[in-house]
């Protein structure tokens, strides 16, 4: 076999490997972009949930002002929070929402007020949006994590310094939020 043929075959093999590397690398990049996009969806939903909960707390406080104040946990939303921090914020919101429901049980006039009912409907819708964002994010993370553990994609991911992403947890309290009796 002449040197030229060997060089041609070697070039073709290198081109195939290069093409494959680029395509896998792009696939991983797209997966990362999709995760980032869905993460911003979670942030939007968390912010909406925060806004509605704040309004609900204001309404509850207006009804309970003559009694000792119910202690709602302070929520701080920041940009660039980690998934764990987002989970924590969400848990605090769950806790506040639970407290709101407990207070509302003791104040029938609060529970039957139009403002409160509207906010309850709103929180249910916001909750659905948060669930959608969470499921979309987790679905994207699942696809990405599967790519990271399957060979030979894993080797390219390693060379790019990509690591497994955390899931955004769902918990039972959040699921209960949508089961509001109006």
């Amino acid at each position: 076999m002449s040197l030229t043929i060997i060089l041609i075959i070697a070039s073709i093999i290198i081109l195939i490997i290069l093409g494959w590397y680029i395509s896998v690398s792009n696939k991983l990049n797209r997966a990362v972009v999709k995760i980032d996009e869905s993460l911003s969806g979670i942030d939007v939903a968390l912010t909406k949930r925060y806004d509605v909960l704040t309004k609900m707390i204001d309404v509850v406080k207006a009804y309970t002002k003559h009694e000792k104040e119910t202690l709602f946990e302070v929520i701080k939303l920041r940009k660039d929070m980690s998934i764990q921090e987002r989970n924590n914020v969400n848990h605090v919101m769950d806790e506040n929402f639970r407290k709101i429901n407990v207070v509302a049980e003791n104040y029938p006039e609060l529970k039957s007020s139009e403002n409160y009912k509207t906010l309850q409907q709103s929180i249910a819708d916001v909750e659905e949006h948060l669930q959608a964002s969470r499921r979309l994010y987790n679905s994207n993370v699942s696809i990405f994590n599967q790519l990271l553990v399957s060979f030979p994609t894993s080797s390219i991911a390693k060379s790019k310094g990509l690591t497994k992403k955390d899931f955004f947890e769902a918990d039972e309290i959040k699921k209960e939020d949508v089961k509001i009796n109006l």
């Binding site: 509605v52 309004k55 509207t118 409907q121 709103s122 249910a124 819708d125 659905e128 509001i180 109006l182």
Partner: peptide, 13 residues
């Protein structure tokens, strides 16, 4: 079966 009469999400603030 699709519970289309469930009006939980029908209104928004």
């Amino acid at each position: 079966e699709l519970s289309l009469d469930n009006n939980l999400f029908r209104r928004e603030v």
